[in-house]
């Protein structure tokens, strides 16, 4: 990977990595730190990384750093606060359903949340998600389906509440 390739990665993938992290941990500053660390690692190992695999490499690094961050955060007894992100993220004002869905996603465990985000935001396949998260394809499939059903139940519950 050349310097130009690296800067192209910044242009193309930094938003996605940041979005993935900030949606997971719900803290912008920490998410920025994680993204910077991920790109720093990519720069250091740029000679070994092919440009075609740079995106998955960035997500992999960012995901593992995020897991470390979450573990440290749990030790410090701090909780994810998705509402903090809500005020800073441009969300469509008419998407009430989206707000409910984001709240429901926030209640998922970190793995399920990451699976949903990687799938819906980035469009990764099960195999790619498995590579990023160190899971098998079947595990990704099972965990992600469980998450979808949980979200579906929450939506059904919400509709019942409205009704």
């Amino acid at each position: 990977m050349t310097d130009k390739d690296f800067n192209n990665c910044v242009d193309n993938y930094s938003d996605g990595v940041y979005r993935f992290i900030v949606k997971n941990i719900g803290h912008e500053a920490d998410a920025q730190d994680i993204v910077q660390s991920a790109f720093e690692k990519l720069w250091v190992t740029r000679a070994k990384v092919e440009p075609a695999k740079a995106k998955s490499y960035l997500f992999t690094v960012a995901y593992h750093q995020m897991i470390d961050h979450i573990r440290k955060d749990k030790k410090n007894n701090t909780t994810d606060n998705f509402d903090e992100v809500k005020s800073n993220v441009n969300i469509s004002p008419n998407a009430e359903l989206k707000q409910i869905l984001l709240k429901a996603i926030n209640e998922l465990n970190p793995t399920q949340k990451s699976l949903v985000l990687l799938k819906d935001y980035e469009g990764y396949s099960y195999q790619e998600i498995g590579e990023i998260m160190d899971l098998s394809e079947s595990q990704v499939k099972v965990y992600l389906h469980r998450a979808r059903l949980i979200l579906k139940d929450k939506l059904i519950h919400l509709e019942k509440m409205r009704a």
Binding site: V10, V22, S92
Partner: peptide, 17 residues
């Protein structure tokens, strides 16, 4: 409906990267 629509979130400090 459980599929998240990608939000327009940008990493503003790209100059740092």
């Amino acid at each position: 409906q459980t599929i998240l629509i990608p939000a327009s979130i940008e990493f503003e400090d790209k100059i740092l990267l």
